[in-house]
Write a protein that binds this DNA or RNA. Sequence first.
RNA 1: GCCCGCAUAGUCUAGUGGCCUAGGACGUCACCCUUUCAAGGUGAAGAUCGCGGGUUCGAAUCCCGCUGCGGGUACCA
Length: 504
Amino acid sequence: MTATNDGAIRTRFAPSPTGDLHVGTAHTALFNWLFTRHHRGTVVLRIEDTDRKRLVERSLGGIPEALAWLGIDWDEGPEVGGPYGPYFQSERKEIYLEYAERLIAGGHAYYCFCSPERLARVREERANLPTKYDRHCRDLSPAAIAAARAAGITPTVRFKMPLEGQVTFTDAIRGEITFDVRNLEDAILIKSDGYALYHFANVIDDKLMAISHILRGEDWIPSAPLHLLLYRAFGWEMPLIAHTQLLLGPDRKKLSKRHGATSIQEFRDNGILPEALVNYLAIIGWSWDDKTEIFSRDELIAKFDLDRVKPSSAIFDHQKLEWMNGHYINHLLTLDGLTARALPFLAGAGLFPRGAPAPGTPEYDYLTSVLALEKERIKRLTEIPEAVAYFFSDEIAYTQDVLVSKKQKLTPEIALAALPRARETLAAGDVADEADTEARLTALAGELGLKRGQLFMLIRAALTGRTATPGLFALMRVLGQERCLARLAAAESWLREHRQAAAD
RNA sequence: GCCCGCAUAGUCUAGUGGCCUAGGACGUCACCCUUUCAAGGUGAAGAUCGCGGGUUCGAAUCCCGCUGCGGGUACCA
């Protein structure tokens, strides 16, 4: 990339607060952020809230919060301020008006008094034509303008699109793209409510905020020529521009709510780690080589650049994200890190009615040893409360099928004979010693004429009420001697009580 | 309709004229490990590189045409 004028790279992400932060928007924001951090430039966050009708109040705070959660920070914008503010477009209304006047004075824009109804009609009449608006007000006489104003009509301001010629710009990801202006509209710049439209506010702000590189979604390509022409009308140079790929749903359509979870907030609530999501988003549309795909944040910053960004759209693969999330949980997060992430989910499930355990306490140590056992089989943080439940509650809900595994060829008789012997065997030692416990239980299995697996499964079920758990001896070590003995007894009496029912 | 973009296995990708009998990853299947479930290891299936023409001794890679898919076409962003 070549830098502009002063050599300083300045980029922006410009979400509009119309809802939660969409994962596609986050993808573009991430590319902006990685590109800028790589080049030690300045990141600007600008809130494009010119559409007052679609404004969703909670997203004003929610979007910056979601970005921060992802670890995408900004040097200028809401919360941090900066020399080019305000960073909310709704507070820049007057600026746009002023620049619109300039355009009109220079003959590059005009007032349009057409009513929405007329516009709708004309659009229908010209349905098959490249431009929908018939430029009715483009050359209104001063008298006609005065008359319309006197009639109380508040006009919009439209751009006076050149009538012929071609516009070409170079996209840093896609190369040259050319449009014929005959296919371009006299776009509205200022709405009749006085607010600027996206295209206009965007161009003015990028210029005023000294943005050097524009990175945005592919869906903006069709409006790029308008933006370029706007820059030209003001006599400004256009920033370098690049259009990133779109994120698609399984049906190859632009990713949206109907494809499932699409907001960053939902990913967080669904137990996805921000570092996993960032890593996954980074490798969709960008690659470093033919095999690496796990990158730390710092590696991403060090390696990311536009020359390895692909132009083609990509289907968002929840399955691969989930795999990567599991990989982070199991292999990349420290135990303390995982514990910290798990705590809110555990608390949410009501596991700590008296408050979450603090590091250094026995409760905290117990929790980390539990998580150490479960982390390799967990893909999302949301799975944790259910996975660790039996470590925190002694009320095990037994069932006949689980306790007396048919698959292991167990019967209530065998179980009732084995359970008390297992208890005796355990009582004679200490489950803190895994190898010793295993040796003694293996010997017991022999005495009882059972296979190791049969006895182990019976004990597993008695201790946890489940057939799928971490390794039996590690599990016993964490559970502790006392709990193990108590649960063996509990399973035995449960079985005795329910034996009759099973026999029927 | 018109304009624009994209095109390597189900999905994400590597590849810029010979290193490609097309590499990696997710997913799928099998085997190994094993007390269960995972994790891990090994391996397999899966792509006539969208199609058709060229250029070249040689093309996934260059050229032309076609097709498919997507995006845009608002006083939304």
